[in-house]
Design a protein around this nucleic acid. Structure first.
Lengths: 112, 112
DNA sequence: GTTTTAAGTTCCAAATAAGAACTTTGTAAG
DNA sequence: CTTACAAAGTTCTTATTTGGAACTTAAAAC
């Protein structure tokens, strides 16, 4: 079964996962809540390949979670910002953050 | 970058994702909160392959999120139950559920 | 005119996942 | 004892996804 097949599952958790249920998508969303909005920022911050970031941003825009906005006309440059729908996803990330802070302490320093 | 490399990331969200940040793991956890606990139940309920379920359960046990408990001695049979650490993950799933209910209405009926 | 910056896309090798069949350990039925 | 059944995995082969580096496009800066 492909994970996008979950999009019509009876369970709202499964439907949510069909959209954002992978590591990089959620990491991109985290970045958005931290104020990042540009392609290369996501690449640097997440450590994912450009290919993946490209694909996930497309998905998130299609889903109405992010919005592509021009921040420069010449050269044409776009950034990705959270929609209202996207903003309302914050409780999930906060829950992840709280759980991680409590149960997964860092063992050595890294830059992410 | 491999996603398990996120386990020592400075960000608690990233660390959490390194453990549970994939579709099937989160679906298994949902099932646990719904009261399921056995291998074949997870296979049926999630629609994932036995291989995947096997792998993810192993990970979750190693991480101390689930506990393998014998429910029959002969034949030896085990079930998987949430630990305290696992139980404390519920706010994240509740957030997913709420978001899904609000933003992703079902289009046609399915069995999951 | 060469370098730099931003936002992607393309290519190929490597890793992961899908799907079905098979294994193991034991119970119950004929 | 031989067949059937059940639960919990494992194994196998094929398909899909991901990783990593290089390339593209468009304009500005040097």
């Amino acid at each position: 079964m492909k994970w996008t097949d979950l999009d019509d599952n009876w369970c709202p958790v499964a439907r949510t996962l069909s959209l954002v249920g992978d590591r990089w998508t959620l990491l991109i969303l985290r970045d958005c809540f931290l104020g990042l909005s540009r392609f290369d920022q996501f690449v640097l911050s997440t450590g994912a390949t450009r290919h993946l970031i490209s694909d996930r941003l497309k998905r998130l825009v299609e889903a109405g979670i992010l919005e592509k906005q021009a921040y420069s006309e010449r050269p044409k440059r776009y950034e990705y910002v959270l929609t209202e729908k996207g903003h309302e996803f914050s409780p999930a990330l906060v829950a992840f953050k709280d759980w991680g802070k409590k149960h997964l302490p860092v063992r050595r320093a890294t830059q992410g």
